[in-house]
Amino acid sequence: MVEVERELSRLLRRARAASQTMATDIHPDLDAAGYATLVAMHELAGTHPGGVRATDVSAALQLHKSTMSRNLGDLERLGLIERVPDPEDARARLVRLTRQGQGSLERSRAGRRSHVAAQLAQWPARDVAELGRLLRRLNDDLG
């Protein structure tokens, strides 16, 4: 168990650094928390293409609504998201990625996938598949 904990810690440190690098690639003023918010919004948009409620993004990231409000305000100021009327509730607003936000995020994620693919290029395909399966299991168990 000591080795698992040590390697998970190393992986998480590298992931935090990579998230900050990817955030900066999208916009020089974007931080890792903003990047995570963009990713969560993109993932939620698969089932809510017109926009998502801030509370849904907050729940997905397990963040307090005040923290989410600040993150969304920063992303809006950077032109990466926009607020739109909720067609189901005239009093409410939804948030969604702007064209710029969507394009920047897609380019960033494509670069990350390419980088990971290069890192794992020498691994046997069955090991890559097993790594994916085990990471999914770990994420499901942690969630």
Rank of each mutant, 00 (worst) to 15 (best):
V95Q: 02
P124E: 15
E43P: 00
L135F: 05
H115C: 14
G143A: 07
V128F: 03
V128S: 10
A125R: 14
D25C: 13
G46I: 03
L134G: 09
G34P: 02
W123N: 12
G79Y: 04
S108C: 08
Q102P: 05
V4L: 12
R109C: 07
T37K: 04
E5L: 14
V84A: 11
A36N: 07
E3M: 15
A45D: 02
A54K: 05
V128G: 10
R99S: 15
A54S: 07
S19L: 10
R133W: 10
A121E: 04
L94R: 03
L75P: 01
P124R: 08
D127R: 10
E88F: 13
D89S: 06
E76A: 11
T37S: 03
Q122N: 09
T37H: 01
R6A: 06
R109N: 06
R77M: 08
E76V: 04
R99T: 12
I26T: 05
R13D: 10
K65L: 14
P28N: 12
Y35R: 06
M22D: 08
L61H: 00
S114L: 15
H115F: 15
A45S: 07
E43R: 08
V57Y: 02
D25I: 12
R10V: 09
A45T: 01
R77F: 11
M41K: 00
W123Y: 14
A18K: 12
E7V: 13
Q102H: 11
A36H: 04
L75K: 00
V128C: 11
G103Q: 06
D141F: 15
M41D: 00
Q119F: 02
A33L: 15
L8S: 13
G103A: 05
S9Y: 10
S58R: 02
G101P: 01
A40K: 00
E3Q: 07
G46S: 00
V4P: 07
G111T: 04
G132W: 10
R113K: 13
L94A: 04
D74C: 10
S58D: 06
A92N: 07
Q100A: 09
R99Q: 14
A125V: 12
P85Q: 05
L105A: 00
V52K: 00
A117I: 08
H48Y: 08
T47Q: 09
H27D: 09
A15P: 08
G50H: 10
A15I: 14
L11D: 00
Q119C: 12
L8D: 08
D86G: 02
R112C: 12
T21W: 11
L94C: 03
A90M: 15
V2H: 15
D56Q: 05
L44Q: 03
D89I: 11
M68G: 02
D25E: 08
A36G: 01
A118R: 09
A17V: 13
